[in-house]
Write a protein that binds this DNA or RNA. Structure first.
Length: 292
DNA sequence: TAATTACCTCT
DNA sequence: GAGGTAATT
């Protein structure tokens, strides 16, 4: 069946596709030569482009396609309402100004959990390779040589050695345990969005290989908890420099500060700080030298 | 509590 | 050494 003509158009405001797909929250998007993005979302291959305030999406099908695209890209959120909850500090203001339109995606909880388990001590390119390899090995074809991300029940039946063959290394054991916990219903990752934040977090932390950072990523990118605040080395670096005069402070102090300082959409603020910090090295903002 | 190290594999 | 975790000291 040919579904190539399933084209949807959205009028978008306060939205920037490039930054949203480049800021490290999703691992299945690839920028094609003409600026169009191709990615696998659930069981579909989407091709997306932004021209000014028009977002064009090809490949999303079914009666609820529009709703699903809106949901995935968080088009139903009013960005200014979110930004206005941020604290009024100069560094965050600058990051928001530079990356205006960046949005936290709403991705599949299981895929998010599995991807971030695979992410530890890995660079983005390697994470993309791992996730792609898992999809090719256990996913289903979605066209154009692409594959969906395999379900927890499928991965629960894999051998650890097969997972290792996808370059997971020591993370293979963790992913297998997570797949089994989800498949058995012990950690119902698809339901966590309806749980209390602390309870959902505790369930994720019960998985081997899932600590504070990965749990926060899953809560934020997969379960819709806007206040979840992942602290990786980049965000830690930014927080320490901006708010603690580069002093050495514990993770605990940082996370308590973040929860207090950034408010109900702390996770969104984190994405702006993270993206800005990642870009600092590549596009110097001017004061790098003074800090050494 | 804070610091160190192993854990896989690749750049 | 890398966007982390867990065990150990």
């Amino acid at each position: 069946m040919l579904v190539a003509d399933s084209t949807l158009r959205f009028n978008v405001v306060d939205f920037r596709l490039d930054g949203t797909l480049q800021c490290g929250q999703a691992f299945r998007w690839e920028r094609l030569a003409d600026g169009e993005w191709q990615g696998v979302v659930d069981h579909e291959l989407w091709r997306v482009r932004q021209d000014g305030d028009t977002l064009t999406v090809r490949g999303a099908t079914g009666v609820n396609a529009t709703e699903r695209v809106c949901r995935y890209f968080a088009l139903d959120r009013a960005l200014p309402r979110i930004i206005e909850t941020f604290p009024d500090d100069p560094a965050l203001r600058a990051a928001v100004r530079r990356h205006w339109g960046l949005r936290v995606l709403r991705q599949s909880p299981w895929e998010t959990l599995a991807s971030f388990i695979a992410s530890s001590t890995k660079q983005i390119v390697q994470i993309q390779q791992i996730v792609g390899a898992l999809a090719r090995r256990w996913g289903e074809p979605v066209g154009d040589g692409q594959f969906s991300f395999p379900s927890a029940s499928v991965l629960a039946r894999a051998r650890e050695s097969e997972l290792r063959a996808c370059r997971l290394g020591f993370r293979a054991r963790y992913l297998l345990a997570a797949a089994r916990a989800v498949d058995s219903g012990r950690v119902p990752v698809e339901e966590l969005s309806r749980w209390e934040f602390d309870r959902a977090r505790a369930a994720l932390l019960s998985l081997p290989g899932v600590g504070d950072k990965i749990a926060a990523c899953v809560l934020l990118f997969g379960c819709g908890f806007d206040a979840a605040f992942p602290i990786d080395v980049w965000v830690e670096r930014a927080l320490r420099r901006i708010y603690f005069s580069s002093r050495r402070v514990s993770r605990r102090v940082l996370s308590e500060f973040a929860a207090r300082h950034f408010g109900p959409y702390a996770g969104w603020a984190q994405q702006y700080l993270f993206f800005e910090e990642r870009l600092r090295g590549r596009q110097p903002v001017g004061d790098d030298r003074a800090e050494r």
